[in-house]
């Protein structure tokens, strides 16, 4: 294994050549907010825009999930410019997210809560206008519920579904603000080809995909 040495937040770290910065940081216990990064996917989506960090010598912040580590790289995950972008992206996500933690199945395991704590940004933004999509909740499946309003479009569920079934049940549809995760031909989840593996629920960082209370099996760890 060829390695490179780099510095993240003042710590010297040895990493495998060719790895993306985000994974190196996370594997060394340095948290960088992220939602859309999938380790096993060959191409980063770079969609959530939460993983901004500053790299010495680069004028603008870069996304850690797309930045390959390099010898001598000096990284600051707490730079002012990077934090401004990460906070702004997070606020944007939250301004379009119905915040109702007490009534949400993901309460306390939700990654949005974790990111909010890390970035020190409130879940309910005051600066921005609340712009909700107000989509219908899909309750058709016997085991779980899908609330598209809480979805942050990270793409994790699509990925695991495709790993399980070859051709997944889930996919992205529509453009712009209307972009949603949905089933093929928009059919209710209960009528789709879903094999009930539950992996999508395990990887969903929010309360968008959740087990119905009565059906809740033992939580299962799914690595992606």
């Amino acid at each position: 294994m060829k390695t490179v040495s780099l510095t993240i937040d003042g710590r010297k770290i040895i990493a495998e050549e060719g790895t993306k910065l985000l994974w190196v940081a996370l594997d060394n216990g340095i948290y960088i907010p992220n939602l859309c990064a999938i380790r096993s996917s060959p191409e980063p989506a770079a969609a959530c825009r939460l993983c901004f960090v500053e790299v010495a010598g680069k004028e603008a912040p870069v996304t850690a999930c797309t930045e390959t580590v390099a010898e001598g790289m000096v990284v600051n995950t707490r730079g002012k410019k990077a934090l401004r972008l990460a906070r702004s992206a997070f606020e944007l996500l939250m301004a379009s997210h119905p915040v109702d933690c007490a009534g949400c199945p993901a309460n306390r395991s939700c990654e949005l809560q974790k990111i909010s704590g890390h970035l020190k940004v409130k879940l309910k933004t005051k600066r921005l206008r609340t712009l909700l999509r107000e989509l219908p909740i899909d309750d058709s499946h016997p085991l779980f519920t899908y609330d598209p309003n809480k979805c942050v479009l990270c793409g994790r569920c699509l990925w695991v579904c495709r790993q399980q079934l070859g051709i997944g049940v889930l996919g992205f549809a529509h453009r712009g603000f209307q972009r949603v995760v949905t089933t093929f031909a928009d059919e209710p989840l209960g009528q789709s080809r879903c094999q009930e593996c539950g992996d999508c629920i395990a990887v969903c960082p929010t309360g968008a995909l959740s087990f119905k209370d009565s059906a809740k099996p033992a939580a299962r760890a799914v690595k992606i």
Binding site: A47, L93, S96, L128, L131, G176
Partner: peptide, 13 residues
Amino acid sequence: CGKCTFCRLGTKQ
């Protein structure tokens, strides 16, 4: 296209 947060939600705001 709606893929990334800034363009999808930032321009909307």
